[in-house]
Computed example of a mutant assay.
Amino acid sequence: MARTILILGGTSDAHALAGRLAARVGVRVVSSLAGRTGNPRLPSGEVRIGGFGGPESLARYLEETGVDAVVDATHPFAARMGWNAAEACALAGVRLLRLERPAWQPGPGDWWRMVADWPQAVAALGDSRRVLLALGRQELAPFAALTRVWFLIRSVEAPDPMPPFAQAQILLARGPFAEADEIELLRQNGIDTIVCKNSGGPTDGKLAAARALGLRVVMRARPARPDLPTVADPAAAEEWSLRPAD
């Protein structure tokens, strides 16, 4: 009988894990995407799109689908899904692993201000006048109150609805972005501050560019998530997924 692995999330690591597991004989891999983007990049294997309706509904899905193990590979800021997955797996008696890249840490030459939420990020902008918002389309509204600031808003999809910014330009683009390209973008637009989330992972182009240009970075810290067994790369998650249950 095939082993069924449920992968939560559409991150690049989730895609990599799905590809590795889909190539295995005797493994059924199902990826669950939130459905927040209109044209998501689909991973290998089976795909379901949309929420589960809470931990109880997810637990029923795990039992009815015969899921053997779950890998939570959602974005570090998808904390609610993380808590729901932990509760659901406990209810259904299914193993759960967190696949998450290590958080970014400031290094020599970095000028970072860490904040816990978006109101703190707004307050931290201080005398900033030209700001790159690199945080997705759903967290923009608090920044619209800063009428003296010009914003370059980078997003995969256009905000809908668009908050009432006094001065803003939308840049639709999907990363990753190379450091050299980021330096050119920041210079062309006269950016003095970057606002982003601590998504983590390999060296990030915009952060390397900010260091090279001496720009400020206002970065939101990751929210709390359940205390789970955690690995940092898809290969380790694959090995765990194929391990027999205790």
Results as ranks from 00 to 15, higher is better:
residue 44 S to C: 10
residue 121 A to H: 09
residue 142 P to T: 12
residue 220 R to Y: 07
residue 242 L to H: 04
residue 150 W to P: 00
residue 112 W to I: 01
residue 204 D to A: 15
residue 39 N to C: 03
residue 164 P to I: 11
residue 21 L to Q: 06
residue 193 T to D: 04
residue 165 F to S: 09
residue 115 V to K: 08
residue 213 L to I: 09
residue 209 A to Q: 11
residue 206 K to Q: 08
residue 237 A to Q: 08
residue 150 W to V: 01
residue 239 E to I: 08
residue 5 I to G: 01
residue 59 A to R: 02
residue 146 L to R: 15
residue 222 R to N: 08
residue 237 A to E: 09
residue 161 P to Y: 04
residue 65 T to P: 03
residue 75 H to W: 11
residue 78 A to M: 08
residue 92 A to M: 06
residue 154 R to L: 07
residue 45 G to F: 07
residue 84 N to I: 00
residue 223 P to Y: 10
residue 220 R to E: 15
residue 182 E to Y: 10
residue 10 G to D: 11
residue 209 A to M: 10
residue 242 L to D: 00
residue 89 C to K: 02
residue 1 M to S: 14
residue 138 Q to P: 01
residue 33 L to F: 07
residue 119 P to M: 05
residue 1 M to F: 05
residue 186 L to D: 11
residue 73 A to H: 03
residue 201 G to V: 02
residue 206 K to F: 15
residue 62 L to E: 10
residue 202 P to V: 04
residue 138 Q to G: 02
residue 221 A to Q: 15
residue 159 P to F: 05
residue 75 H to P: 10
residue 122 V to T: 13
residue 52 F to D: 13
residue 42 L to E: 12
residue 1 M to Q: 11
residue 195 V to H: 10
residue 226 P to R: 05
residue 10 G to E: 04
residue 22 A to I: 00
residue 235 A to P: 00
residue 56 E to N: 03
residue 180 A to C: 08
residue 197 K to M: 11
residue 231 V to P: 05
residue 135 L to Y: 03
residue 244 P to I: 04
residue 183 I to W: 01
residue 182 E to G: 06
residue 78 A to R: 08
residue 239 E to S: 14
residue 123 A to S: 14
residue 213 L to H: 12
residue 156 V to W: 00
residue 198 N to W: 03
residue 125 L to I: 13
residue 75 H to Y: 06
residue 78 A to P: 09
residue 37 T to H: 13
residue 49 I to R: 15
residue 33 L to G: 12
residue 140 L to V: 08
residue 44 S to V: 00
residue 48 R to K: 08
residue 109 G to T: 02
residue 104 W to Q: 05
residue 239 E to Q: 15
residue 28 R to S: 05
residue 8 L to Y: 06
residue 125 L to T: 09
residue 152 L to M: 13
residue 8 L to Q: 10
residue 37 T to Q: 12
residue 234 P to F: 03
residue 199 S to F: 00
residue 128 S to W: 04
residue 197 K to F: 06
residue 144 A to V: 04
residue 111 W to N: 14
residue 44 S to G: 03
residue 127 D to K: 13
residue 191 I to Q: 01
residue 138 Q to M: 07
residue 41 R to E: 11
residue 2 A to M: 14
residue 203 T to S: 14
residue 60 R to D: 15
residue 219 M to V: 13
residue 183 I to L: 11
residue 24 R to V: 04
residue 34 A to W: 09
residue 103 A to P: 00
residue 45 G to Y: 06
residue 144 A to K: 01
residue 159 P to E: 06
residue 125 L to W: 03
residue 223 P to H: 12
residue 4 T to L: 11
residue 118 W to M: 15
residue 217 V to W: 07
residue 119 P to W: 02
residue 201 G to F: 10
residue 24 R to S: 05
residue 27 V to M: 10
residue 191 I to E: 06
residue 143 F to E: 07
residue 120 Q to P: 05
residue 154 R to M: 04
residue 91 L to V: 09
residue 134 A to F: 07
residue 156 V to N: 01
residue 208 A to Q: 13
residue 215 L to A: 09
residue 93 G to V: 05
residue 186 L to Q: 13
